[in-house]
Structure formats: structure tokens, C-alpha cells
């Protein structure tokens, strides 16, 4: 009976996975099919992928630049903010935390509209990629802050800092030698979430973009809407090739195992002896 239930569970899980994965695989397959109307028997080709690259490599490059800029800003703002929030657990801190998550809860279109109303008349800013970066920062910042706050509380940073202070370390010495190394996994997990979200963000970006500031997902929508199905599918393929490795890394660093922790300390030892 138990065996049967396990088997049933496995079958249901597999069916669910197939249900979700097959359309994605079909889409990617369509991207390398010569003529989708005639099925993959018409032959496989990289023509569509090449076309997509020629048409949209600007969007792909821009997406990466925007993601990196977003990451830089969320690191500079989010890490100190997350650390500060973990230190003060009063009402104001909780209120700020809630306020910060608001842009995640409300539709991206609404945040984008607000940005347009506010800064739409500043033409130079509005037409630059920085306008999109600002939108992405608003959307991704809470993920960085939360990740950092959680790890600060999780590793009892307050006591570690008191320990360092008792040994004569000033605030900056504590921050660089104790705080940062111990919250590194949280920063890393936050950073990968930010990059992944930024590269995939569509809602807000679609509202904020101009013809010269088209990102990867916006280009994808454009390709779906105005090109052959094969081109749209080839686009999906490129998107996957970019995002899957990121997701894999994200998965492995956000759940550090004991072994990885050991490796980390070893690495640090090498850093310090070097």
C-alpha cells in the first residue's frame, strides 16, 4: 500500500512537471524549427536565433547593464538598510519594512505610472536607461533588504558585534571584519534575486521603456507581437540560456550546506594568508 502511494505520488508529480515543462520545451523547439507550421520535420535551423540576435542584441546588452546598475544601487542602499533594520526592531522599523514591500505588492504598472507622472517631464532622465533602473531598484530593493535583515537576525550579529567591540574594534572595523563576512551568504542570495528579477521584469519596464531603451523581456513581447512565431520562440531560447544558469547559482547559494560553509572558511583562510 505504501509502495503504491509512493508510486502514485511520483506519477502525479511527473505529470505536473510535464504539464509545466512541455510547453516551454515545445516553445524552445519551435525556435530552432525551420517552419513551425510544418512541424520540426521541416528541419532544424539556427537561422531564427541568429535573426533574434541581430534584431535584439541591443536589448539583451541593455538588460544586463540595467541589472548590474540595479544590483549596484541595491547593494549600496539595501545592505546598510537591512543591517540597520535588524538592529532596531521598534515600530518605526517595522513600518518602514512594510512600506518598502509595497512596490512588490502593487502592480508594476501602477509604480511605473507614478514614476511617469512624477518625472515624465524631465526628458533627459525619462528617455535614459536610468529611468528603468530607478523602477527596478524600487521593485527589487525589498528583496535585498529582507535577505540581509534575515541573516543579520539569524546569526545573532548583535552579540558578535559586542564581542568585536569588547576586543577594541571600532564600528568600521566591526563592519568589515565581522558583519560583512558573516552576512555574505545573505547578500549573495539577495544579489542573485535582484539580478534575476531585474532581467525578467516586464510590467514596470514595459511602461517605462522608450524605443531606445528596450530590455530583454520588452523585446520578447515585441517579437511575440510583431514577428513570426519562430522568432518569438528563438527569443525564449536565448532568454533561457541566460536566466537558467543564474537561477541554478541562486538555488545553490541560498541554501548553504555544511560543506559549503567549510569551503567558505577555507577560502577565507587563504585570503588572509595571501
Amino acid at each position: 500500500m505504501k509502495k503504491f502511494l509512493t508510486a502514485l505520488q511520483l506519477v502525479i508529480t511527473l505529470l505536473m512537471v510535464l504539464f509545466l515543462v512541455v510547453p516551454v520545451l515545445m516553445s524552445m523547439l519551435a525556435g530552432v524549427t525551420d517552419n513551425y507550421a510544418h512541424g520540426w520535420r521541416s528541419g532544424l535551423t539556427l537561422r531564427w536565433v541568429q535573426q533574434v540576435w541581430e534584431l535584439y542584441h541591443g536589448a539583451i546588452g541593455l538588460s544586463i547593464l540595467i541589472a548590474l546598475a540595479t544590483l549596484a544601487i541595491t547593494l549600496v542602499v539595501g545592505v546598510p538598510a537591512g543591517y540597520a533594520l535588524s538592529r532596531s526592531r521598534n515600530r518605526l522599523a517595522r513600518w518602514l519594512e512594510g512600506l518598502m514591500v509595497l512596490p512588490v505588492a502593487i502592480p508594476g504598472l501602477a509604480s511605473a505610472l507614478a514614476l511617469l507622472v512624477m518625472y515624465g517631464s524631465l526628458t533627459a532622465f525619462r528617455t535614459s536607461a536610468w529611468f528603468i533602473v530607478v523602477g527596478h531598484v524600487i521593485f527589487t530593493l525589498p528583496f535585498m533588504v529582507r535577505s540581509v535583515t534575515a541573516i543579520c537576525l539569524g546569526c545573532d550579529l548583535k552579540t558578535l558585534e559586542e564581542g568585536a567591540a569588547s576586543l577594541g574594534a571600532t564600528f568600521w572595523q566591526r563592519f568589515t571584519t565581522v558583519v560583512l563576512p558573516n552576512i555574505r551568504p545573505g547578500i549573495l542570495a539577495g544579489a542573485l534575486t535582484v539580478v534575476t528579477l531585474s532581467i525578467g521584469e516586464f510590467n514596470l519596464t514595459w511602461m517605462l521603456h522608450t524605443p531606445t531603451t528596450q530590455t530583454l523581456p520588452v523585446g520578447l513581447a515585441d517579437a511575440y507581437a510583431s514577428m513570426r512565431l519562430e522568432i518569438g520562440s528563438a527569443y525564449t531560447l536565448i532568454f533561457f540560456v541566460m536566466i537558467v544558469p543564474l537561477l541554478t547559482v541562486l538555488q545553490s547559494v541560498s541554501k548553504p550546506t555544511g560543506q559549503q560553509r567549510g569551503q567558505r572558511t577555507n577560502r577565507m583562510k587563504q585570503d588572509q594568508t595571501a
Partner: peptide
Amino acid sequence: IEHRQVGMVFQNYALFPN
């Protein structure tokens, strides 16, 4: 505390895991 030159042992030791 950082300028008092004291040595402190905490209940949970507060050793640096890194």
C-alpha cells in the same frame, strides 16, 4: 566598550564563525 580595554566572555561566547 572598544576604548575600555576589557576582556569579555559572553554566555553564548559570540565567537566569530567566519
